[in-house]
Design a protein around this nucleic acid. Structure first.
Length: 495
RNA sequence: GGUCCUAUCGUCUAGCGGUCUAGGAUAUCGGCCUCUCACGCCGAAGACACGGGUUCGAUUCCCGUUAGGACCA
């Protein structure tokens, strides 16, 4: 293992794993695998109010489903609060931080005043220059205090070379002496996060662009602590079509990883889609195997502009980003059958139409049927819905198909039984044999073969569309085809 | 309000001063294939936010404007 690279994924367990978090996890994971480095999973659960066990489980399940593997952890930030506070104490002792006794009221007043003067409110450093005696005096009265980091005075600046955004610089004078420990004794995120990253030996911080703005503050903490500063790579954010940040509140389950698991996405297809949301190779390659992606990945390929996850809320044709569906469909029809077999099985089991023999004596039939129908499916759930007629005798009849392909041609009332008899009489029932029977019958009764073909398709599948009919008949099998044709005569009774 | 980031087809993006009459993917439309629908193949339409510079030459560099986003409050 390459000891030179240690990255981490550090989610807050305040909800399910959403696509933004998944993307961050994927980039960290890819970078670790690419460099032979180490990925640490750290749960930042210090917000006890909003954190939950359920959410931790959801995140871990989501990562596992995506196929993201980590080398260490999960660690829990809440286990290290003492260390965060001890670090603040050390900062106090070394003179890099100070106690601030200013009350909320005072600060609010100053803030209000600043607003009236159209100036920015930065902490004015009232307590920075307190003498030891003054501090002792205030402490003796039991006054609560926050701990603030001493930001250097003067004309300098903190800068760093972000791998994605380039050189970012912030003037000292634009940074106030920021709070690192609240008056109630809670460490702030900027501090906890930096302390954890130091302890875990993180060399590359790959995180959302929302961390960009407080990176200078964190660097100041590293410096005050005399620790080496890691490299930073901030990634663009994922927005909704209204260019608003995606959130559970606004978008519900649709932005959750588990939604895609439940709606028939293959995990790798989803990873492939997500990785392309804000990252690309110079040749704009679209489809990657895991090995290819690890090989091709680079932090430099991350786009600086935010990208839009094109969720379609009320689109009848696309229930989510069309590109995501397209990539999923691509994998569904091109992956080796054995790879999608378990997913199809899971869908059929969920629908209650799984036959254990599909994994036994009927496995060859099962795989070839999956192969026959998969080309026009987008998600694995389609196997249990659109593909139901191949695995169950109870399947819905589409009204439009019924009308157009069956009821419109009254002659089918006689032709269906005729075809049933002839197909039943076939000694070898296969695509070729069925085709011969159907075409000859069409000629005999003097109609276009298409009328019989489409009528039969609807009678045996309930649909107007599907694979070539003769292959369909071969897949459904002689007995069921004959039964369904005879049963179809009853469809005319409703007239 | 302050600071910072960003801006190429509807969407994801390539482009890192001339190779751009701006390439790919997806979505859309048309054609071929055909028993239907897909797949596949072929084709069409579709973008450099705006305004100034710099330069012999800007999508590319600089500055403003606008818009969006983030962070701090």
């Amino acid at each position: 293992m390459n000891k030179d690279v240690v990255v981490r994924f550090a989610p807050s367990p305040t909800g399910y794993l959403h696509i933004g978090g998944a993307r961050t996890a994927i980039y960290n994971w890819l970078y670790a695998r690419k460099t032979g480095g180490k990925l640490i999973l750290r749960i930042e659960d210090t917000d006890a109010e909003r954190s939950s066990e359920e959410s931790i489980k959801g995140i871990i399940d989501g990562l596992k489903w995506l196929g993201i593997t980590w080398d260490e952890g999960p660690y829990f930030q809440s286990h290290f609060i003492e260390e965060h506070l001890a670090t603040a104490q050390r900062l106090l002792e070394t003179g890099h931080a100070y106690k601030c006794f200013c009350t909320k009221e005072e600060l609010d007043r100053k803030r209000e005043e600043a607003r009236r003067n159209k100036a920015d409110m930065r902490y004015d450093g009232t307590c920075r220059n307190l003498t030891p005696d003054e501090i002792a005096e205030k402490e003796a009265t039991g006054l609560p205090y926050t701990i603030r980091l001493k930001v250097p005075k003067g004309p300098g600046s903190v800068g760093f070379q972000d791998i994605v955004y380039g050189y970012i610089e912030k003037k000292y004078e634009d940074i106030e002496d920021f709070v690192i420990v609240r008056s109630n004794g809670q460490p702030l995120y900027v501090l906890s996060n930096a302390v954890d990253d130091i302890r875990d030996g993180i060399t590359h911080v790959i995180r959302g662009q929302d961390g960009l703005a407080n990176t200078p503050k964190q660097i100041l903490i590293y410096r005050a602590l005399g620790k080496p500063v890691p490299r930073f790579a901030h990634m663009s954010l994922t927005l909704d079509p209204q260019k608003a940040k995606i959130s559970k509140r606004r978008h519900g389950e649709r932005v959750a990883v588990h939604f895609y698991k439940e709606h028939g996405f293959l995990p790798w297809a989803f990873v492939n889609f997500l990785v392309l949301l804000g990252w690309s190779t110079p040749d704009s390659k679209q489809i990657f195997s895991k090995e290819e992606l690890i090989e091709a990945f680079s932090l430099e390929g991350i786009n600086r502009a935010n990208s839009i996850f094109d969720i379609r809320k009320d689109d009848p044709k696309f229930f989510t980003d069309p590109k995501a569906l397209s990539i999923n469909a691509h994998y569904l029809r091109t992956l080796p059958l054995e790879e999608i077999e378990p997913y199809v099985r899971a869908e059929l089991e969920k629908a209650g139409i799984w036959d254990p023999e599909y994994a036994g004596v009927k496995r060859d039939w099962f795989l070839s049927t999956v192969d026959l129908i998969r080309a026009r499916f987008h998600v694995t759930t389609d196997f249990a819905t659109l593909g139901r007629c191949y695995f169950s005798d109870e399947f819905p009849m589409e009204p439009k198909a019924l009308k157009k392909n069956i009821l419109k041609h009254g002659g089918l009332k006689e032709w269906f039984p005729m075809l049933a008899d002839r197909l039943e009489a076939l000694e070898i029932f296969d695509a070729g044999g069925a085709e011969k029977v159907i075409r000859e019958t069409a000629e005999e009764v003097g109609i276009k073969a298409g009328i019989l073909i489409n009528g039969i398709r609807t009678a045996v599948t309930g649909q107007a569309v599907g694979p070539g009919l003769f292959e369909v008949l071969g897949a459904i099998g002689q007995k069921r085809v004959v039964e369904r044709l005879r049963r179809a005569v009853a469809l005319f009774n409703g007239l």
